[in-house]
């Protein structure tokens, strides 16, 4: 038996359904990241958020970026963040002091910003096509190492510099008053 193109009864396409689910997860976990009191949970919510994004990338036809998203954001950055949290959150760290005093104005500003972006997006003609186009991996590799070879090399230099400096800053010194 073939799976129908669209969800029965409400006539919602499968990929639309997936989009809605992923969006809800994305926005929900994003909100949790910035509002939760326990910073470790914030970190975990961030991982969920990244995962939802990876799903969206796959849905819109960029599987390689989705894979990279999982590897880099979930595999590396989130782990690094969690690691830093573990290292710095001693019992003394007061979890109740989550927000600045001006959290409310910040919330209003952010809401206005979001609304503004949404309105602008709605008011703009993007010359977009009706359906997402898939990006093949082979052509991507070709473009990356041909057209974008300079940015690619620079990014590696950037990572090198970051790692060298990062190690210097983060390493504990034997003799210093660490």
């Amino acid at each position: 038996m073939a799976i129908p193109d669209a969800l029965p009864f409400i006539n919602l396409r499968w990929d639309d359904l997936l989009f809605i689910i992923l969006s809800v997860v994305l926005v929900g976990s994003g909100l949790l990241v910035v509002t939760l009191r326990d910073i470790i949970r914030c970190g975990l919510a961030m991982m969920v958020c990244f995962a939802a994004l990876a799903g969206l990338y796959a849905l819109v036809g960029a599987p390689l970026v989705a894979a990279a998203q999982v590897l880099v954001y979930i595999g590396a950055i989130s782990v690094l963040v969690l690691f830093a949290i573990m290292l710095t959150q001693t019992k003394a760290a007061p979890a109740r002091l989550v927000f600045q005093t001006q959290a409310l104005p910040a919330a209003i500003a952010a809401a206005v910003l979001g609304l503004l972006i949404a309105l602008t997006v709605g008011a703009t003609n993007w010359n977009a096509v009706a359906a997402p186009i898939r990006t093949g991996t082979a052509i991507l590799a070709r473009v990356l190492f041909d057209q974008f070879v300079l940015p690619f090399e620079i990014v590696s230099v950037l990572l090198l510099a970051a790692v060298i400096g990062g190690i210097f800053l983060a390493k504990r010194e034997e003799d210093g008053p660490a």
Binding site: I154, V157, L158, A162, G165, G166, F168, G176, A178
Partner: peptide, 20 residues
Amino acid sequence: FLGLELMVLPGYLLAGFAKR
């Protein structure tokens, strides 16, 4: 943008260079 990042990232590190 990449140049900008390559300029400022070392800048952050230098600002914190006296790490003690």
